[in-house]
Design a protein around this nucleic acid. Structure first.
Lengths: 346, 346
DNA sequence: TCCCTTTGCTAAATCGGATTAGCGATGCGA
DNA sequence: TCGCATCGCTAATCCGATTTAGCAAAGGGA
C-alpha cells in the first residue's frame, strides 16, 4: 500500500537497461532475442531484489489475455452440495496460474447477461457455465470465447463441451451392489420409478439413474418389485413415499434415488421397526455428508463434484488450445462408497 | 468472439467526435466539461447502437482500480456449511458492480502468499480474508490495501476490521430458549462444558457459546447439571459423549454445541428409548441443513453465514471509503430457529 | 473596433507492459 | 580497406481507456 509497485521501468533503470530488454528477460525471450547472459543475470538479480512482479492488468491490456476464467452458475457457489465443484475448479485453475471469477445468476437471464458482460469486460480467457443440479440449460448466445458446461447439458444443440456425472453408470453400479449382495427380489425404488416415466420433472439424474438400474437388473433377470416417486428429493418426501410403500409391501431392499430421500426412508423404516440392513438393505446416490452421519452409514454412489470441477477447467483449457471436439460430452465416473447399509443375502 | 469488441475509438468515430468527448460523455462528465446536449445525445445513441462497453482492463490500467475484490479463505469456498458466506458476499458485491475473485489457501502460508500476489497483480480493490470456522488467524503482512477479516479475528493486534457471528449472544439465546420453556434443572451440555475450560482446542465458538449459556443460566439461578466435551464436533463424537452421559444421568434438556453433535445426541437418546422432546429437550447451534431434516426438527441458533458475507463486503467498502474505525469488530446476530425439539415444562 | 471571457471541444500524455523494427558496433572474408 | 553479416540492445508503437492542458470560435463590454 504505502510504496508504489515496482514497474518494468523501475526494473530497467535499476539494471541499467532499456524497458525492452527488461521485458525480454522477464518473459524468457532473452535467448531468442540474443540478450547476453551477463545482462540477463543483471536484470534477473535486480528483479529479485526489487521484488518485481509484472502488473497483470497491463499485460492483459497489451496481450488481450487475463489468465482468469469465469465461473458462472445458477446458484452452485452457495449450494452446500456443490461447493466441491468450485474447489476442484479452483485447484485445477491454480495449477495453471489462473484465477477464478465467481458469479451467480439465480436463474435470472437478466443477471446472467450482466454477469457475462462484466466478465467479458474484464477479458476472461474462458467461461465455465455451471448448474447446481444436473440439468439441461439454455446456453446464452453471447458466450464470446471458449466456454464449457459444468454439470449441465445444452438444451439446444451447441458446440460447447459438457462435463456431467456418469449417472447411467452410477445406476448400474447401484444395482450391481444389490445383485452382488445376493438380492434378487423385493427390490423397490424410492424417489423415482419403478418405470422410466415415474420421475420428478426436469431431473436428468432421475432418468439416467433409473436407466442404469433397470438395465443391470433386467440383464440379471431381476424385476423391480415397485417404487414410489417423489416430486422433490427431500427427506420429508422420502419419508412419506417410504411410509406409503410400507403400508402394502415388505421390501428387502431399497434403491433411494438420493441420500436425502434415503434419510427419510431410514426414518420410515425405523418407525415400523424394520432394521437396516438386517431387514432391508439400502443403496443411494450422491454421497451427501449425511450419508456417513446416519446409522448405519449409508452405501451410496458418490457425485464426483470435485472431479467435475477439475475436469471443467481441463476441458476449458483444451478448448482454449483448440484441441477439443465441439459439443463433446465428458462423463465423470461416480464411485460407489461401500458402507454399512447393505447386507448380504444368501 | 467473431467480431472485435467496440472500443472507445469506434464509438468516437461513429458519433463523429473525439475519443476525449466520447469518454467524457460515457463517464457522465459531459455536463461538468461543458459538452453540448446535442453532442452528448449523439454519443449516447451511438454507444447504444454499437453496444459499447468500456474495457475494464483498460480502465483498470488507467485508473488503478479494478472494481474487483478478492475473497481469500482457508477452505471456506468448498465448505458445505459456509458457501452461503460467499453467496452473501457475491450479492453485496454485485449490488455495487464489483466482481469477486475466489481463492483458497488450504491453510498453507506459501499458497496464501501466492494468492495475495496474484490478486494484487490484478489490482483488486480490496480483500476479504475468510475462515471456515470462526477462529483467530495470522494476518499476512503483505495485505496491501483495504482488507477485512471474515469469520475470523486477528491473532495479533491489527488494524483490520473483523466480521464474526455473535456467539456469546447466541449462547444467551440458547439458554433463554430453555428457561422460557420452563426448564430449571437437568440441563446438560454436549460438545463442551459444563465448565469454561472443557472446550475443544482452537474453538472460539465453544468458549463464547458457553460464556453466554452460563451467564444467562447463572443469572436465573439455574445450575448446569453437567456436560461432556467432544474434541471435534462430529456426529459420532456427539453420540459417544451423549451415550456416556446417559450411563449415569437422566437429563431433562441438552444444549448441544452444534447440530452435528446434536445429531449424535438424537441417536444416543433414541437408543435408550428417550423421546425428544417428550423426555428430553434439545437446543443446538449452527442451523446446519440436517437440523430441519431430522425428526423432531431441531431448535437451533443459526450461524448467519449469508449475512456475514454481506457484512464483509459492506465493511470492506466502508474501509475503502476511509470511513471505518481501525480494528473494529462487527458481530452479526445469530437468530434462533424455533422448531420442534424443545418441550414446555410446567 | 479591440480585448477578454466563456463555450465547446480536442490533442496529447499517461497507465505498465509486449512487440516490431531497426540501429550501432564488431567480426570476417575478400 | 571495404562490404556485409551477426551480435546485442533499444526506440517507438500499441493495447483502450482517462485526464490535463489548451485551442478556436462566439459572445460581451468598453
Amino acid at each position: 500500500m504505502s510504496r508504489r509497485r515496482v514497474t518494468l521501468a523501475d526494473l530497467a533503470q535499476a539494471a541499467g537497461v532499456s524497458r525492452t530488454t527488461a521485458s525480454l528477460v522477464m518473459t524468457g525471450r532473452a535467448r531468442e532475442l540474443r540478450i547476453s547472459h551477463d545482462v540477463e543475470q543483471r536484470v534477473l538479480r535486480a528483479a529479485d531484489e526489487l521484488g518485481y512482479r509484472p502488473n497483470a492488468v497491463s499485460v492483459g491490456l497489451r496481450t488481450g489475455t487475463s489468465r482468469t476464467i469465469g465461473f458462472v452458475s445458477d446458484t452452485v457457489a452457495t449450494s452446500r452440495l456443490a461447493g466441491d465443484m468450485i474447489k476442484g475448479a479452483l485447484e485445477a485453475a491454480r495449477e495453471r496460474g489462473v484465477m477464478l471469477f465467481i458469479g451467480e445468476t439465480e436463474g435470472d437471464p437478466e443477471l446472467e447477461r450482466g454477469l457475462l458482460h462484466a466478465m467479458h469486460d474484464r477479458q476472461v480467457d474462458g467461461l465455465i457455465l455451471a448448474a447446481m443440479y444436473t440439468r439441461t440449460i439454455k446456453v446464452p448466445k453471447d458466450v464470446g470465447g471458449p466456454a464449457v458446461l459444468l454439470n449441465a447439458l445444452p438444451k439446444t444443440p451447441s458446440d460447447l463441451p459438457s462435463i456431467v456425472p456418469d449417472e447411467v453408470e452410477a445406476g448400474r453400479a447401484a444395482a450391481r451392489v444389490l445383485l452382488d449382495a445376493g438380492h434378487r427380489d423385493g427390490i423397490y425404488t424410492i424417489g423415482a420409478g419403478p418405470a422410466l416415466r415415474n420421475v420428478p420433472p426436469q431431473s436428468v439424474a432421475a432418468v439416467e439413474r433409473l436407466v442404469g438400474i433397470r438395465e443391470v437388473l433386467g440383464e440379471a433377470g431381476v424385476k423391480i418389485a415397485g417404487g414410489r416417486m417423489c416430486v422433490d428429493w427431500l427427506p420429508e418426501l422420502g419419508f412419506a413415499a417410504t411410509a406409503d410403500l410400507l403400508k402394502k409391501h415388505r421390501p428387502k431392499a431399497l434403491i433411494c434415488l438420493n441420500d436425502r430421500v434415503a434419510l427419510g426412508a431410514y426414518q420410515a423404516l425405523g418407525d415400523v421397526g424394520l432394521d437396516v440392513p438386517g431387514d432391508v438393505s439400502v443403496v443411494s446416490f450422491d454421497d451427501h455428508p449425511i450419508a456417513s452421519w446416519i446409522r448405519p452409514k449409508l452405501t451410496t454412489v458418490a457425485l464426483p463434484y470435485y472431479e467435475l470441477g477439475r475436469k471443467a477447467v481441463e476441458v476449458l483449457f483444451a478448448q482454449m488450445g483448440e484441441e477439443a471436439k465441439p459439443g463433446e460430452v465428458h462423463r465423470v465416473a461416480m464411485p460407489v462408497m461401500h458402507r454399512d447399509s447393505v447386507a448380504t443375502r444368501s
